[in-house]
């Protein structure tokens, strides 16, 4: 304790300056250098750096925009391809439809032709039949008239002229026919 006090008592002989208070030369140099530094930063040093940084930000922004535009155009091209694909598909479907309907009409026409032919053949056959029938009728008719008149004359015991009775027989036959 005494040692400490002695050391303290032996402290600096002259009164030391207050270490808190600033001294004039340092104030002067501090103000001078800071003013110079601030002016340098403001007018000489910072603007080009700031301009470069702004340019870079601008470049990055425009690159991003370009990428966005490229993406949009790519997606529109993909849309075009899709459209083309859909068009081709529709065209193919149309072609197939057309072919199918053509085949259908062909079939219809062939069928109709065949039907017509069949109908014509049937008609011909019917005509033949009718002709044969009328021919047979024509062959049969005099005989029937003869037979009828002879049967009638026998029944009435008098002679009936065949030629006179013929229209009656004919009308009868044609009625019964």
């Amino acid at each position: 304790m005494s040692l400490l006090l002695i050391i303290a008592a032996e402290g600096p002989a002259k009164e030391a300056d207050n270490p808190i208070l600033p001294v004039v030369p340092e104030l002067f140099w501090s103000a001078l250098t800071f003013a110079a530094f601030f002016l340098l930063i403001k007018f000489v040093l910072l603007p080009p750096v700031k301009r470069t940084m702004d340019l870079r930000a601008e470049a990055i922004r425009s690159d991003l925009d370009a990428a966005e535009a490229a993406k949009a155009s790519a997606s529109s091209a993909a849309g075009d391809v899709d459209d083309q694909l859909a068009g081709a598909r529709a065209e193919a479907a149309a072609v197939i439809d057309a072919a199918r309907s053509e085949a259908e009409t062909e079939r219809q026409s062939i069928l109709a032709q065949a039907n017509a032919e069949v109908a014509k053949m049937k008609e011909l056959a019917e005509a033949d039949l009718a002709a044969a029938r009328s021919q047979a009728m024509d062959q049969v008719r005099p005989k029937v008239a003869e037979l009828a008149t002879s049967a009638a004359s026998k029944a009435m015991d008098r002679t009936i002229d065949v030629e006179a009775a013929r229209p009656i027989v004919d009308s009868y036959l044609s009625n019964s026919n």
Binding site: I20, L21, P22, V23, E26, L27, W29, S30, A31, F34
Partner: peptide
């Protein structure tokens, strides 16, 4: 560590 510069700033 001298008061001058902090004071000016």
């Amino acid at each position: 560590a001298r008061m001058a510069n902090p004071l000016i700033l």
